[in-house]
Design a protein around this nucleic acid. Sequence first.
DNA 1: GGAATAACCTGGATGC
DNA 2: TGCATCCAGGTTATTC
Length: 305
Amino acid sequence: MPELPEVEVVRAGLAPAVTGATILGVDVFDPRALTRHVGDPASFEAAVSGRRIVAAARRGKFLWLPLADEDEDEGLAEGEAIVAHLGMSGQLLLRSPGAAAERHERIRLHLAHPVHGELDVVFADQRTFGSLAVDRLVATLDGAPGGWGTHAAATPSQVAHIARDPLDPAFQDARFRARLSRTSSAIKRVLLDQTVVSGIGNIYADESLWAARIHPETPASSLPTRAVNRLLEEVRIVLERALAEGGTSFDAQYVNVNGQAGYFAHSLRAYGRTGEPCPRCGRPIVRVSFTNRSSHYCAHCQRRR
DNA sequence: GGAATAACCTGGATGC
DNA sequence: TGCATCCAGGTTATTC
């Protein structure tokens, strides 16, 4: 499931290939892949064709490719971008022009790069929770760059409500602590709330809470400052380790832009290890239903307060 | 206004 | 073997 490390791997793979490239044309094979786009496939194609990609940016699980006309530079707080969200199973793949269609291919962008020549960016998505869109850029409220991979203090309007991720230099720890202190919701639910902290999904929420020895249903406001700080530290460690290992792949659902899987699944301590011994105390990891999904934790190490 | 829940979707795994 | 059901989960609209 693409969370921050997986999306960042995709962004980092796209950036050198698409930055500076001009979009020659678009093929939309499934309009459901444009559910975030206001307008029909023809309007999407018209909005991007002939324009130049000036960066590959990311905040949390959202990616965007700021667009410029031939005589514009990046850095504008206005303008438009192609926004991408991979949802549950979305992939962005780099392919040679004329390469065979991918399974579940929904959209293909045809690009011409001044150095690399022509290439295609394929958006494939099995479960169709992901989508592309053209969206206007809006200035960030704090004046800092919109996210990783861009110097422009702007994000697509669809991303404006998304909080910064814990690896973002502009992430404010104090603001995070204050937000937690105001809600009695379960800490795992808060970690999954992208308006509080972005980039964390079910896998890394379970892993971070295990590392910080916090029960997933602990009311956020009951956590002492020391525990919140430890949790933030563990979140960052888990995300950085996963990023270094290329992300988490359980099957072919998550791959980088070249179709290769990441290795972090081998390093998971709690997620998906139901019944296996806790790496810390040896007692079995348990799985419980949690808001239409699963939580994995050690009932001994992560006792409920 | 905050919190909880349902719906969207496909394919692999499981049970009968 | 074949069919039916369950499960995975990010985001958002809806409901409480």
